[in-house]
Write a protein that binds this DNA or RNA. Sequence first.
DNA 1: GTCTATATCGGGATAGAC
DNA 2: GTCTATCCCGATATAGAC
Lengths: 219, 219
Amino acid sequence: MSSPRTRPDSRTRILAAAAHEFAAHGFDGANMDRLARAARLNKAMIYYHFRGKAALYAEVFREFIRGVLDRLHAVEESDADPSDKIRAFVLAIAAEARLRPHFPPMWLREVAGGGRHADQATLGLIAQIPATLGRIVDAGVGRGEFRPAHPLLLHFGIIGPLILYFVTEPVRVRLDRVSGLPPIPPDDVLEQIVHATLATLDPAPRALEARPSRQGRRS
Amino acid sequence: MSSPRTRPDSRTRILAAAAHEFAAHGFDGANMDRLARAARLNKAMIYYHFRGKAALYAEVFREFIRGVLDRLHAVEESDADPSDKIRAFVLAIAAEARLRPHFPPMWLREVAGGGRHADQATLGLIAQIPATLGRIVDAGVGRGEFRPAHPLLLHFGIIGPLILYFVTEPVRVRLDRVSGLPPIPPDDVLEQIVHATLATLDPAPRALEARPSRQGRRS
DNA sequence: GTCTATATCGGGATAGAC
DNA sequence: GTCTATCCCGATATAGAC
């Protein structure tokens, strides 16, 4: 995990190459030979540093989650308004995704697989992300600035579009050519997500027009 | 593709089992032996009906996309208001996801992989989904009911949360236990997504509070 | 159309020299 | 710590009988 002396190399290179490989091909599709080549090392070195493919994957994934959580906790502990914290929450995840471009694809695949490759401890870390959002919302509700919302569902409204935006960045060229759509203005992405999230939390929604004709009620 | 008489048989069973297998394990993780057992057939039968794993995958995937597109085109051609069409758009995708629970995971993995397993024709089909949304938005803009928004980004705001909701259904039990969160009220999901989408399209946004600069108190 | 049996190969993991 | 060479299982795909 960490020796006192500077050990810049093989282990770090393996982790970097692993992030790339897992992001591009998923757990099952990842190839240890290719990974070793990318790290400019021999395959045996991987097994010298890590117990196996699964352990390497878990390590990479936990590193990502920790990076996100560090930022989010900083957001939570700031003294901004609740709505500014929501904004900062979105920006923090986006910043981390930009910093570690391999995170969005890995995260997507992990979700699609039902968390199969994540041990219980890692799942616990992941759960802290919506939990943090939930505390921010609660604070806003306490001040009367937000109406209550389910943290996980709200979180889906944030990372869903965000991750899709990042993860489709490479494909969009292909898609755009087929669909004839213009590229997405980068600045719009975060604005829209923040705006939509705050609209969901708005205690006085103006969404009468959102209701078709008759509407069931929940509190 | 279709014989006139009822052929409820091997080919159909293979497709059903394939949807399950690909959804649960992804393309690389899918196992033809396990797939054959699930279809109560021998593995050789798969290769009798399909050219290989890739062809089988493509067939399943295209079937899903067609199902979605059929619903969406019906929505587009209805004579509802633009905002009701937006609502119907969301409901249509949700209905299809309920009907074919294997679609959300497959779709997620495909996106994460950058559309690697989809041929150009299938990509063209996929592109029709946001394109349809775009035409609905354009109609609303023409009536002054919507403000312009990028169709693909808007689409991300819809399917992102939606797919995450469906795809995490199995995991949420595990996650909830760790996080201590209550389950998501199912009725809230579609309401929130529709509401957020319409808020994004609102031509007179009340989102001054969404701006980073210091905001004044609201009335 | 449906089966059993098998060819073939890619890739995760290890042995052991240096 | 780093390498080369290799084991060996699992998985796709096929041959060929019925």
